[in-house]
Amino acid sequence: MELLKKAIAGTMESSDIMVEIIPWEKDLEINLKSDVEKQYGNQIRSLVKEVLEEGGVKNACVNLNDKGALDFVIKARVKTALYRASQGGSYE
């Protein structure tokens, strides 16, 4: 999937995560801000990376602001951000 523009998905509400995806030339970069960074930081990063890889995304900067989102919410928000960044590109 080709990223055409910067896109955001999610909110700053509890149990949600705000995902910003910026297309760029460099390798994948994932920046995470989370109240549960110590316990779940690595798990969140690896889940986001997995979703990006499934979408064939290798070059992007991904900024995450997590408010205690469960895995299914994280996946949904990353997929939405990818869908928006690729302007409706088929993810599924």
């Binding site: 299914f72 996946k75 949904a76 928000r77 997929k79 939405t80 928006r84």
Partner: peptide, 15 residues
């Protein structure tokens, strides 16, 4: 509308 679709889809498959 798009984000709700992804959210409900993931919820149904994972929760």
């Amino acid at each position: 509308k798009d984000s709700a679709r992804f959210l409900v889809s993931e919820a149904l498959q994972n929760v």
